[in-house]
Amino acid sequence: MKAAVIVFPASNCDRDAQVALKEISGTEPHMVWHAQTELPDADLIVVPGGFSYGDYLRSGAMAARSPIMAAVIERAQAGVPTLGICNGFQILTEAGLLPGALLRNAGLDFVCGTRTLRVENTDSPFTRSFSQGDFVRFPVAHHDGNYTADEDTLDRLEGEGRVAFRYVESVNGSARNIAGVLNDQGNVLGMMPHPERVISPLLGGEDGAKFFRGLIEAVS
């Protein structure tokens, strides 16, 4: 399994993604700098968390226009599984690969800690290792994770089974407690929580390891 992790200025979870992918797949992922214009051959693309470009303008707005993103968009639209975590989710919405937007958290507070999510969809490479209705515990750490979309879009996401994860309790004000959404092909997932941070009991849990094992099996 070959993976590519995109690295932006001020990314701070790119190495977490690198470690998780290497630990679980046994293969070192490609680390792709944002200024490159071509992606290596990859079965999986990861757009990691962080504060790309210092979150200037809007979170993810500048990163979505980085040179490498044209290649990411092309590969994602061609069907390559693409995962955006936290700031990566923001970048994917800004790039038009996912609907909706991520606003400032309700209450304008930075939220940080482990939260419980419910698995809503298992028909994707990202969620195949879970059963619908399973509860998982992933860390969150964000200031702009309040997912929003118009009611028609939210209804369509619900009706098409494109809500992948939902917060059990409100974390940031997200519409309908949405924590992660899929594109219409099911090969692009954006999620605010961090599965890459819980791949070992030493890190506080293994739900992230289960997430990545299923994903790696699906794309291998």
Rank of each mutant, 00 (worst) to 15 (best):
V119R: 07
N121G: 02
T122F: 02
S124T: 10
P125E: 13
F126P: 09
F126C: 01
T127I: 05
S129Y: 04
S129G: 11
Q132F: 00
G133Y: 01
G133W: 07
G133A: 10
D134E: 06
V136E: 04
V136C: 05
V136S: 00
F138Y: 11
P139H: 13
A141Y: 01
H142C: 03
H143Q: 08
D144M: 12
G145V: 02
G145R: 03
N146S: 13
Y147H: 05
T148L: 11
E151A: 14
D152S: 15
D155S: 12
E158Y: 03
E158V: 06
G161Q: 06
G161R: 04
G161A: 12
V163H: 01
A164M: 07
A164C: 11
F165P: 01
R166M: 07
E169Q: 06
E169R: 15
V171R: 06
A175Y: 10
R176A: 08
R176Q: 04
I178R: 01
I178Y: 02
A179W: 03
A179T: 06
G180K: 13
L182Q: 04
L182Y: 04
N183C: 06
Q185E: 12
G186H: 13
V188D: 12
L189K: 15
G190C: 07
G190D: 08
G190P: 12
M191T: 13
E196A: 10
V198M: 12
P201N: 13
P201V: 02
G205Q: 13
D207N: 10
G208M: 09
A209H: 03
K210P: 00
K210Y: 00
